[in-house]
Design a protein around this nucleic acid. Structure first.
Lengths: 203, 203, 203, 203
DNA sequence: GATGAATGAGCATTCATTCAT
DNA sequence: GATGAATGAATGCTCATTCAT
């Protein structure tokens, strides 16, 4: 099935190119021509793979969300203890290298802006920030609950702690994006993990 | 100087109108005509007060940043103990009502996107997210240091804790914007404050 | 009401310009830029007066249809005898000079093509060839009936005769458009009128 | 020569497919892809048989013109008396079934528009409406002349009568296309023939 | 010969900005 | 100062045509 492979590969190529240009310029400053150029193809070709600029943006955002989700889930699944799970999850969440975000992190606020605005406009959207956050909170919440059940953690509210784990991670992203030179994302996350685990630890 | 006042009032009116429309539609989906309509004036009049759409956006973002900054600073200044300062600061940071953000919170990701991108493009910008975050970290950091010095808090690194206080606050904003119905911003912040103060408290 | 007049005048100017270019090039070969140029305005200005190229075309067609209709009706109304009415109506129908069609006659097949196709597509159309023809047949039919009633004409079927009067007139247009140099529209119409009146005359 | 036949058959298939789509959508709304689909082939294949969309359109129009011409000529040739010749010719002219026009009549105004415009643009065109009409007028004119010579018809001008026979036939087409449900093309033609023959008959 | 993916010229339309009134 | 009609640069998207397979 040579065609199939080619098509998927090309679509992916365009997606990646779009991701980069979107990140650098913002969605509205990005012209289809730029994406084409970045992908090394002609403008018209993009439309063989994506219906419109808007769909392309959605696909890009969706791709990122799925990547991050998979990454976090996998790393948490592998970890053994509840504390390890939390640690692995948070580190995976901010693992820009593994997520391929190191060069395109600026895209996140656009994703957020887009996702938040979708609520108000169209209903048939492929991604829903509401659901995304629910899921992350659930993911961390279950690890927390497990830790509580096992007596590793204090008897705290998993809902609120997980919300704040996710919040901290997002917030670190924001500070890092604003000042990549001086803000060390990984260190911030590790520091946070240590402190948090100490805070919720049962001893 | 009645003229001056009138001019300022009108400029403010346009700014507020732009803020609302920007928040609802996003900057690029906002047309100057919409802003004019919202402000109850003619399209051309906006240009008597703002050089361009871009300047208008900058003024809007700057206004918000200044508001938030003032609010946080004031509330922290009034508070007496270090713990009270932290609490007051965080609550002020997320006080959407007082900040007038309750109806226009969706503007924040646009502000972030804009601010982060400014780095790459133009140098002569009126606001700088890097500096904004430095300042907030410094603000909370000084309260933390004071608490440490007074023996109220454990001997922790004010830099990293303040970074994560700001991060959590931003992150809560994000979750709240994504799901205003089900995520209680104020509760999340208060929960967080309690836990954090317990965690860093010296006893 | 200076504005109102200006606006209407300008709209009319654009309409007339579009009519000419449409006639010369055909609707699809006509670019909005050409219309603007012909009207002596900028491309964008057209859109202040017409929503789209399609609407512009519809307005042009409608204008022509209304003009022709008015012209025929008026000339028939003035005429006294039934025979005069028929004659006046037919001559008015093909009076390219009075209708302003002398330089833009080629637009008629486009009008027909457009009108016929409208049936298949959109329902909310401002003109309906079906109705147009019904009306013309009715107009000539009533003159015929009057002639029959008065004993001027033989006892023939007004429906079928009126249909064929209109048919002949349209057909003459077609031959004239195809060969303006050698086909004399007015002569053809007059010849036809004489013969027909002789044919249906009662003596 | 089996290959030749195959080629011709395929070319014809494409031509017929194009005819249908052109009729339904109009030439400019017809995309080459649609024609290919209708013909059950790939888009690129059309270009193996026709140089361009424009040529395809010309071939379609030419085909129709030739068909109609042959049909009319043949039916007139068979008829014996001048009156029969006229009758046969007119009926053949509007015999949509035999001409294969019943489903694609809407194509006629496009043909007219195209033909009329050719005059203004390119000189090397395969068909010329001017010539087409000359021929039809000649065809009917000769039958009329024969009738006059034989004393069957009054001494009228064959030129003008033939012009008006053709005109009526075209005009009937137009009314029929505009309202196929309520306008009976054949009946209109027959009615017309009867009346005309009565009018020009010598008795 | 047939295919259909790729191309890129071409165009309708939008909208920030200007400026005559 | 205020207006809103006019502008025209800019851009998303289409689709006839090409050509490697």
């Amino acid at each position: 099935m040579p065609k199939k492979v080619d098509k998927e590969a090309k679509k992916d190529k365009i997606l990646k190119a779009a991701m980069k240009v979107f990140a650098k310029k913002g969605i509205f400053e990005t012209k289809m021509e730029m994406v084409a150029q970045k992908a090394g193809i002609a403008k018209g070709t993009i439309y063989e793979y994506f219906k419109s600029k808007d769909e392309l943006a959605q696909m890009v955002f969706n791709y990122l969300l799925v990547q991050m989700n998979m990454h976090v889930k996998q790393d948490m699944a592998i970890a053994s203890s509840p504390a390890e799970k939390l640690k692995a999850g948070i580190l995976a969440y901010v693992d820009v290298e593994a997520l391929g975000l190191s060069d395109i992190s600026e895209i996140l606020p656009d994703l957020w802006a887009y996702g938040i605005r979708l609520r108000n406009s169209r209903a048939d959207v492929p991604f829903d920030l509401r659901w995304i956050y629910l899921q992350y909170r659930d993911l961390f919440g279950r690890a927390l609950q497990e830790g509580i059940d096992k007596g590793h953690f204090k008897n705290l509210d998993p809902k609120s702690v997980s919300a704040f784990i996710v919040a901290a991670a997002d917030g670190f992203y924001l500070q890092w994006m604003s000042d990549r030179k001086n803000f060390n994302l990984k260190n911030a996350a590790e520091d946070f993990i240590d402190k948090m685990l100490a805070g919720i630890g049962n001893n």
